[in-house]
């Protein structure tokens, strides 16, 4: 799967989440948006929703089973949740193996 497509899916999933937030909590999503940790505007439950949605989309729409929260993800030097770019890179890595 092309990186551009992965970026599109991830960005659209995060944007969908942002749309559900109250006006004062909305923010602009870009490649540097932090998903988890210091500076993140996304709460824990929302992050879990994003991850579950993404795993679901890749599985149901593209037949690619990925796990974004297992120890492989957690033990990476650069966390997949540092930014949208980092998550896209990680998903690309997983899809290439699939």
């Amino acid at each position: 799967m092309e990186k551009k497509k992965i970026t599109e899916i991830v960005t659209s999933t995060v944007c969908s989440l942002v749309e559900t937030l109250p006006a004062e909590q909305k923010f602009i999503v870009d490649q540097n948006t932090i998903l988890f940790g210091t500076g993140s505007k996304i709460d824990s439950l929302s992050l879990v929703s994003i991850i579950v949605d993404l795993e679901g989309v890749f599985s149901s729409d593209y037949g690619i089973d990925i796990s974004l929260t297992d120890d492989r993800a957690m033990m990476r030097k650069k966390s997949p949740f540092d930014s949208i770019t980092a998550l896209v890179d990680y998903i690309e890595e997983l899809t290439l193996e699939n």
Partner: peptide
Amino acid sequence: LKLYKSSNFYLKLSKINRFIKI
């Protein structure tokens, strides 16, 4: 099984400073 294998993610999310062996 998948949830169990995500334990360390949920520990981090819960701000619990533990890393368990899966």
